[in-house]
Design a binder for these strands. Structure first.
Length: 261
DNA sequence: ATGACCACATCTTGTGGA
């Protein structure tokens, strides 16, 4: 099965690109971030007509996550457990069939955290702590699990065009990387890095300053797999070509193929 | 070249993104 994550930066603006990419890529499950709309405003019928079941966790103007799946989702959770007071729609989780098993998959839009230091950065680190706690609880099931989304974390200097320029940024500060390693070290595999050693492969290019044309990007969209999912990993890649489409998101889709027989 | 964008809400300017 093919799973994917894509920060679309407004589902309303990006719907044509989403529908075109769904047709191209034919993913089984897609986690979306930054819908920037309430649940009622999600273009549900168009996505359903493309062959997908839709679960959303939206809010007005900002954030918002969704999971599209060819099979209906079960056991859907809205909001990050342990952050019940979170007013920001950043987490959605559900179960989908995977061969004769089930895959638990989450769509994550981790806080940006800039400017750092400050309250927004504190919120990011708090969110990462709660995500770690929830990941630990899910990993205890010892089942296929994919925590996928826009982590707003540049894991290593190989994942950024100019590490020095990002040194003080909330996406690359030492405390951010430490919190990300804490999550990964619970037993989650970065699908892209498991498949590729090539440095400087990116999933985001800023709209500004000709970042795309100069390949000044960062890799911040990740598929983090439990052992039971990583054991099934066949391939993973970044659909960079989508960044060249008209009206692109600043992020592109990242996908992984898992073989559940 | 300390340059350069985009989406949203609101109303032509501010906020947020990364």
């Amino acid at each position: 099965m093919k799973i994917a994550t894509w920060n679309v930066n407004s589902i309303k603006v990006r719907l044509p690109n989403l529908l075109a990419w769904l047709k191209d890529a034919e993913p089984d499950v897609v986690c979306l971030q930054e819908l920037k709309c309430v649940d009622e405003a999600f273009p549900r019928s168009q996505v359903e007509d493309a062959g997908y079941n839709v679960e959303t966790h939206g809010q007005k103007t900002y954030n918002g996550v969704a999971i599209l799946s060819k099979s209906p989702l079960e056991d859907v959770t809205r909001g990050l457990p342990g952050m019940e007071d979170d007013e920001q729609a950043r987490y959605l989780e559900g179960l989908v069939p995977a061969g004769d098993q089930m895959l638990r998959i989450a769509s994550i839009y981790l806080p940006n955290g800039n400017p750092a230091p400050g309250p927004k950065y504190d919120y990011k680190l708090d969110w990462m702590e709660k995500l770690a706690a929830h990941a630990e609880a899910l990993l205890a099931y010892e089942e296929p699990l994919a925590l996928t989304g826009d982590y707003n974390v540049i894991p290593t200097p190989d994942d950024v065009h100019d590490a020095a320029a990002w040194a003080d940024d909330a996406l690359f500060r030492p405390d951010t990387l430490k919190a990300f390693r804490t999550i990964a070290n619970l037993g989650l595999t970065d699908a892209f890095r498991a498949c590729h050693t090539t440095p400087h492969r990116y999933s985001f290019w800023d709209y500004q300053a000709g970042a795309w044309q100069k390949d000044n990007g960062i890799r911040i969209d990740h598929l983090m797999l439990s052992a039971h999912a990583a054991d099934r990993l066949v391939s993973c890649d970044i659909d960079k070509y989508v960044r060249d489409w008209e009206k692109p998101s600043d992020h592109v889709p990242v996908w992984a193929e898992l073989d559940f027989d």
